[in-house]
Design a protein around this nucleic acid. Sequence first.
DNA 1: ACATTGACCTGAGAGC
DNA 2: TGCTCTCAGGTCAATG
Length: 263
Amino acid sequence: MPELPDVEMQKRYFDRTSLDRSIVRIDILEPRILKGGDPERMKGTLRGNRFRSTCRHGKYLFAGLDRGPWIVFHFGMDGYFVYAPEETTPEGNARVLIQFGNDHRLSYNSWRMLGRIGLAEGPADYLNELGIGPDALDPELDFTRFREILTGKKSPVKPVIMDQHNLAGIGNVYADEILFQARIHPITDVSTLEADRLKALYTSIRKVLRSAIGYSADVGRFPKRYLLPHRHPEGRCPICGTMLQTVKLSGRTGYYCPKDQKP
DNA sequence: ACATTGACCTGAGAGC
DNA sequence: TGCTCTCAGGTCAATG
């Protein structure tokens, strides 16, 4: 479930494997993965070109080339890269192979086909067109700006912080951790949050996402006092031992501690 | 204009 | 055994 921290890991992986290499061939094993669905344009853009830089915004990863448009990677719920020698057999969920001149290739893998690879004139234009909000870890996103974004919204807090038009990068899983650490019940209407609760929410967003990156977005390495290692039907609150409860919001299952997160 | 719901996609696991 | 149902979850179109 690639959310902001997971996509950040994919960016770092891409940067240390795939920058500054000549691209010699593209194999599009599953054309449906292309946003806009134009395999020839994708191939024509990449062939003979080189990736020179990347930038991440929320769950989107943009890769800039020597010339032409940018490549946009979105990982859906199970997308990931694999960089390997070209003689190795691609995994069954490989969707696009980018072959480099050094006899290695980058594979974009995704079982469920919810990820997409597309083209964009630039990150800013692309994000503007989709109406994506500021990255949840953007240094310029201070508390004042955060509060402005939530002002006037009237919905349970969880879908609000998951809405990429408000903030970019938070998905179902990290939203649970963020609300757990802020001690806010997921169903609480944002319009009813007092200033100190809002501040706690803001602080929790930044802390959870930053620390998740620090743990390489690997839940197995998270502290035991975090919610995510216990986020399953038999899980108990790591603070008070209460059985975690679930609530369905906008079709997504949320886990929370009924004792520590009061409505 | 805003908020909410369901479809998309695939495999795992449960229930009959 | 084998069918059907539900679930996971990010987006986006359609509905409220």
